[in-house]
Simulated assay, not measured.
Amino acid sequence: MSNVIPLRNTGGFTRMDNDLYEALIGADLSGRELRVALAIHRLTAGYNQDAVKVAALYIAKMMYGEDKAESERANVSRAVNGLIRQRVLFRDGGSRDPITFLPPNEWKVDPKTTVLKPTQSVKKTHATVLEITHIKERNTNLTANAVVAAVASTELVLESEAEQQSTTIPDQPGQAKAERIPYDRIVAIYNEVCGEKLPKCIKLTNKRRTLIKGCWNLDFNGKLPFRKGEFWTAYFTDCLKKRHWIGENDRGWTADIEFLTKQDSVLKVLESL
């Protein structure tokens, strides 16, 4: 018996370009991203359209059904933005504008790495016993010029965290203790403030460490502003005010943690205050 079903008996079909089909097979997309891409293809090629204007909620209904659509809408929206950032999809404008596929040779798919979502931080006490402390939610309604007093009263200053986390102890009197930059905490602040609008940082690469270190040591008007935790929150909050950086442009491009920690980007924000 043949396993080929005649198309006339299927009740309809959606054609897929071979190059697109093979590109989707080979692309290192997450499961949700692939399902979103297939939904967009169904809504475009399936209805003989080059592009489609569709809400994330409608795609969520296709993927999860009516019962779970509302709770999954934000995840679908992030997947759409991720596909646009990786140039798999293209949308000329905001979330209400039509969306379509770009040619596979223009795709810039990120390699995926499975990591656990950070929910805890570790600090070293004076008794050299590791103590687990939950990361508290922070107030993100801040600016670099005016930081609310509640932040200062509930959060540790990153300079203090760096001293607590340092595992290098001087061997001789007068030997300086090595300073450790709290990279994981800075990444957590970025994800908390920017994670809804910009790609989340899921892996701390050497390049990203170098860029964060550059911010940490940046001398701006005789001060080191990035040595304090509340300043990172304020800085990332101010970055979200730049509409071009959050995807409101003709390419659907969005900034990420690497872009926001480049010295040119940092100075552009600080000098505009």
Rank of each mutant, 00 (worst) to 15 (best):
I5T: 08
L7C: 09
G11A: 03
G11R: 01
R15W: 11
M16W: 07
N18Y: 11
D19T: 13
L20H: 03
A23C: 03
L24K: 03
R32G: 14
R32L: 11
A37P: 01
I40L: 05
H41C: 05
Y47V: 04
Y47D: 07
A51D: 05
V52R: 06
A55L: 13
L57E: 06
Y58D: 08
A60P: 02
Y64A: 11
G65W: 03
E72I: 10
V76C: 02
V76H: 02
V76P: 00
S77L: 04
R78M: 06
A79R: 00
G82L: 04
G82A: 06
L83D: 00
L83W: 00
L83T: 03
Q86A: 06
D92Q: 02
G93E: 00
S95N: 09
R96H: 08
I99V: 04
W107Y: 06
K108H: 13
V109M: 07
K112N: 12
T113E: 08
V115Y: 11
P118Q: 08
T119C: 11
S121F: 11
A127M: 09
I132G: 09
H134W: 11
H134Q: 14
I135L: 10
I135H: 10
T140S: 09
A144E: 10
N145L: 14
A150N: 13
V151Y: 13
V151H: 13
T154N: 15
T154R: 12
L156C: 09
L158A: 08
E161L: 14
S166F: 02
D171A: 10
G174M: 07
A178G: 07
A178E: 14
E179I: 10
E179V: 11
Y183E: 03
Y190F: 13
P199Y: 04
K200V: 09
I202Q: 10
N206H: 12
K207A: 10
R208L: 14
L211S: 08
I212Y: 04
C215D: 04
F220S: 03
G222F: 04
L224T: 11
R227Q: 09
K228A: 13
G229K: 11
W232F: 03
T233R: 05
L240F: 01
K241L: 07
K241Q: 12
W245E: 04
I246M: 01
W253P: 05
I257L: 13
E258A: 15
F259I: 14
L260P: 05
L260D: 01
T261H: 02
Q263H: 08
D264K: 15
V269Y: 02
V269A: 01
